[in-house]
Computed example of a mutant assay.
Amino acid sequence: MARQRLSRDQSRRQTRERLLTAAAQVFAEQGFNGASVEDIATAAGYSKGAVYSNFDSKEDLFLALIDQYLAVELEKLGDGLDLSLWEAEFERDLTENRTLNLLTVEFFLYAMRNESARQKLAQRYRVAYEVLAKLLAQHYQQAHLPQPMSAQHLAWAITSMGTGLFLQTCLDPEAVPERMYMTALKRILYGNGEPNAT
C-alpha cells in the first residue's frame, strides 16, 4: 500500500517538529550558547536552510521550545489549585525537566544582554503570570479565604520562589530542608494558617 503523500502544511509541521526535537537534544548537550544552527539542522537531518525557513534565528528556535513548555504548564494549571500536584511538578523540575530548566536559566542570562530576546521572553512570562493570577483569585474566592496580597503579586512571588529554590537545590541539594517547596508555598498562599484542604 502506497504511503499517503503529506500536504505542504503537514510537511512543514513535520519539519518544524523534527527541528524542535533535535534542538531540545542539541541544546541539552551543548547549552544555548554552545549549540549552533548547523548542529541542530544536522541532528534533525536537514540543512541550515530548513531551520531558517521555519525559525528566524537560534533564539526564536529556543523560544519555541519555551512556548511548548509553558503551554503544557498552563494546561496543568487549568486543573485548579492542587498543592500536592504543584509539589510533584516541582520534583519533576528537579529530575525530568532539570535540563530544560537549566537551559531556561541560561537563556534568561542571554536575554538580559539582548533586548530583543528579553522582550520576547518577558512577554511569554507575562501571559503565564496572568493565567496563574486568575487561577489564584478564583481559588480564594471559591474557598472564601482572605488573600495575603493581590493575585498578581502572589503569582510573581510563587514563581520567583520556585525558580530560586530550584537553583539552590541544584547547587546544594543536601542543604535544602525537606519539603521546602511545599512549606514556602503554603506560607506564601495562606500565611500562618492553612486551608482545610489543599
Rank of each mutant, 00 (worst) to 15 (best):
M1I: 08
M1F: 09
R3Q: 13
Q10V: 01
R12A: 14
R13S: 10
R16N: 03
E17F: 02
R18Q: 13
A24P: 01
V26W: 02
F27A: 03
A28P: 01
Q30Y: 11
A41Y: 00
T42E: 12
T42G: 01
A43Q: 15
A43G: 05
G45F: 05
Y46D: 06
S47L: 06
K48R: 14
K48G: 05
A50Q: 10
V51A: 01
S53N: 13
F55K: 03
E59V: 09
E59S: 08
D60E: 12
F62Y: 10
F62P: 02
L65G: 13
I66L: 11
Y69I: 02
L70I: 10
E73G: 11
L74Q: 14
D79T: 13
S84K: 14
L85K: 13
E89T: 04
R92L: 15
R92Q: 15
D93G: 15
T95E: 11
E96G: 04
L102C: 12
L102A: 12
E106V: 10
F107W: 07
F108I: 11
E115G: 08
S116K: 14
S116C: 02
S116F: 07
A117E: 03
V127D: 10
Y129C: 07
E130C: 06
E130K: 12
V131T: 14
L135N: 02
L135V: 12
L135E: 10
L136T: 00
Q142A: 14
Q142T: 13
M149W: 00
S150E: 05
A151S: 15
Q152A: 13
H153F: 10
W156M: 12
I158C: 12
T159W: 09
G164D: 14
L167Y: 06
D172A: 14
D172T: 12
P173A: 13
E174A: 14
V176H: 05
Y181K: 10
M182N: 12
T183W: 12
A184K: 06
A184T: 06
L185Y: 01
I188Y: 01
G191S: 06
P195I: 07
A197H: 11
A197R: 11
T198G: 09
